[in-house]
Amino acid sequence: MTAAATTETGARPPRAGRRSAPTWVGTVPFLAYTGVFLLLPTGIVIWNAFRRPTGGFTFSNISALNTSAVRTLFVGSLELCVISALIGAVLGAILAYAVASGRQDGVVRRLYLAGSGVLAQFGGVTLAFAFLATIGPTSGILFHASWFYDFPWGIALIYIYFQIPLMVLVFLPAIDGLKVQWREAAENLGGSTWHYWRYIGGPLLTPAFLGATLLLFANALSAYATIVAWEDQIAYVVPQQIGVALISEVGLVNFNQADALAFGMIVMVVIVMSGYFLLQRRAARWQR
């Protein structure tokens, strides 16, 4: 072992001496690409949010957000995200428990896991069409839902369709982490099912559940295609208005509104995701 290590280190210097460029040069293409198309755009959003269209630093873009119209958008986003995240999280957790309590290599588990992987990604225009075909107010095959275009419940139902599978994917590892021995220990000590969930399972799963709910919240916050395909005449949530501002920006009408709104979204996402990572770290304690 020691001998091998010595030969190893002994062999390195000549190699190192032969190379012409430092090793980090290999990362330059990747850094350049992500610099231009990921970091730069993010920077531009933050920069423009505090810049006058004519140049110079200002808070006026941000304070321009404090109108009743924009407040309605942020409240709308909050409503839709909270509703779809909470319902998605509860239903997803129930489904995850049903999946987890089956056989580890059972067909049902594999089917639901693969399906969840697909459906959690299945958003966008297509999903809105699918629901239009199912319960559209004039075209629904199942029934004609008069509330299909109601905000937030109509669109929340569509969002829940991709929130539940995401919850299953995120929450299943936490449920799998519950050890059978803990339940047996509780039963041996005379505890009932209620006792088990109230004092052991529940408290253990709470951080993971809350974390996953936050992730679902962020997921609903950034969804854009589905809600635009659902309704493109009225802007109910922030992403819709960003799209409108951006498209009308061709004529440089209200240049920095899109940036200010986008900055508002970045702030929300950063808060939510920080909460998610904190909770996730706490939840990971029991998932070994």
Partner: peptide, 24 residues
């Protein structure tokens, strides 16, 4: 750094990214 840069697009919503991409 690589992991951070690769996973960052999950956190930044595409609709935010597109605002910054517009000038580019």
């Amino acid at each position: 750094v690589l992991e951070f840069l690769c996973l960052l697009p999950l956190t930044i919503p595409a609709i935010v990214l597109v605002v910054g991409l517009a000038p580019i």
